[in-house]
Amino acid sequence: MTSAGRSTAVVIGCSTGGLHALSTILAALRPDLAVPVIAVCHRGQDDDGTLLVELLAQHSRLPVCEAEERRLAAPGIIHLAPSGYHLLLETDGRFMLSTDPRVRYVRPAVDVLFQSAADVHREGLLAAVLTGANDDGADGLLAVRRHGGYALVQDPEEAEAPQMPLAALKRAGADAVISLAGIARTINERCP
């Protein structure tokens, strides 16, 4: 069990405008963050993933890497879902991949990551839905909240593409609707 207000893992979902949004958050995370951060950012299928990792690493004070199947979601590291695969978390805290059909037209899907992470971390999960031009992440955020996790949604007015935050709010609601700076601050506070 986690003590109240403490999170044991962070999951982030974003799509259109996600690179900028994710960079903004990563740049503001404390360098001694003690939990794993796992992110799904939709992108082209033939992208082998290195480009996004490199771009984000330029902004992040924490190491950024592509999530590798069977490896632990390690604390203090930003793990990105590889392109073309769904990323799931197993109960032992390790990553697994799947090539099952697209969910909401996308793979990796935020929903898939959020749902499996919610099963594992339950009330210890902190989830954030950022900018995006589709509905992915809404079902996932609902699963997070049903398991008692903490749900953040980027302020749709600030988001480059408001559809994803709006869909998440409509489907799941949130514990806070805040700016990217506010999301980073909340992560820093809840993950000492």
Binding site: L88, L89, M96, S98, D100, S116, D119
Partner: peptide
């Protein structure tokens, strides 16, 4: 089978 993906299926 790994449980997270099996569960979804």
């Amino acid at each position: 089978y790994a449980r997270a993906s099996l569960k979804r299926r």
